[in-house]
Computed example of a mutant assay.
Amino acid sequence: MNIATWNVNSLRLRLPQIINWLLINNIDILCLQETKTPDDKFPYDAFEEVGYKSYFYGQKSYNGVAIISKYEALEVSYGLKDYDNEQKRVISITIKNNISIRIICIYCPNGQSLESNKFIYKRQWFNKLNEFLVEELLKYPNLILLGDYNIAPTDADVHDPNIWKNTILVSDEERSFFKELINIGLYDLFREFKQPSSLFSWWDYRNLSFIKNKGLRIDHILASKSIVNLCKSCFIDKTPRKNKQPSDHTPVLINLEIN
């Protein structure tokens, strides 16, 4: 089973790219972030025509998450429990392919700067995410958390740690948010495998950042221990970042061996 995450930075602009990539890579489940698409405008039919169900939670111009799946969802839920938040950042489904798997797609706040009100929101949001996941793990032992976390968890995930030191996405406090997710029993699947150095999932559009590989690894797939045991690979596919009018992010994929 091939499962992936991709911040597409506008579903409307990149729909043909997304469908083409889905089919070429035989993706079973794709989590999308920054769809920037209200629910009544979601291109459900376009995905259905190529064999996929769509589950979505969106808004106009900002945020928005979706899960595109070959499997029909047994359950669908929206947002974080007990958190009144107008920003559409979380959607969860349960699917079954011999085993039941909980798929949670997240678009975490950026935070803007460490001194801003948006960073206070980021701190609060991650606290709520942590509380939510503690409960989810009790209910769903086979759990995968995919998305744009807006955190580079270690210096190995940053093209130049000295330049980024104590800045947004790379600060010690944000890294502590990520570590808290690991501490509740999740595993960074990318780091479960030997990886080449300087692999990133996001590059700024400016200053030839992609060509110079000045990026960050901020898109992650975390999973419960039972999923780690099924995971055969995790990698970053840079190919879509070479497209004409690409997203500034590129997909991260895992392959699960499920009999």
Results as ranks from 00 to 15, higher is better:
N150A: 08
F200T: 02
N150K: 05
C108S: 12
N110D: 11
F200N: 01
L138V: 10
K165L: 00
S171R: 08
F193Q: 03
V158M: 13
F178K: 05
Q195G: 00
V158N: 06
E173Y: 13
A156C: 04
L138K: 14
G147N: 02
K139G: 05
N117D: 15
G185C: 07
G111I: 12
I144V: 14
G111N: 12
R191M: 00
E136A: 09
D157S: 14
E131D: 13
L145Q: 06
L138E: 08
K128F: 05
L137F: 10
P109M: 05
N110L: 06
N110Y: 15
E135R: 08
P196R: 02
V134F: 09
E180D: 14
S176F: 07
S176I: 08
G111A: 10
G147Y: 01
E131K: 14
E192A: 09
Q112H: 13
L138N: 13
D160L: 06
K139V: 09
D172F: 10
T167S: 07
Q195M: 06
P153N: 01
W164P: 06
S113V: 04
P196V: 01
I163V: 14
L129C: 10
P196C: 02
I184A: 01
E115G: 02
I182W: 01
S171Q: 03
D148N: 12
D155Y: 02
F193Y: 13
N130P: 07
V134P: 04
L181Q: 00
P109D: 00
N166M: 11
Y149W: 11
G185T: 03
I163K: 13
N117C: 01
V158A: 02
N130Q: 06
L145E: 07
I163D: 04
D188I: 09
V158R: 06
L114E: 08
I184D: 00
L189E: 02
D155V: 14
N142D: 08
F190P: 05
L189S: 07
H159T: 06
F132R: 00
Y121N: 01
F177C: 00
P141S: 00
N150Y: 14
G147A: 07
I184G: 09
I120F: 03
N166V: 10
S198P: 00
N162G: 12
H159A: 03
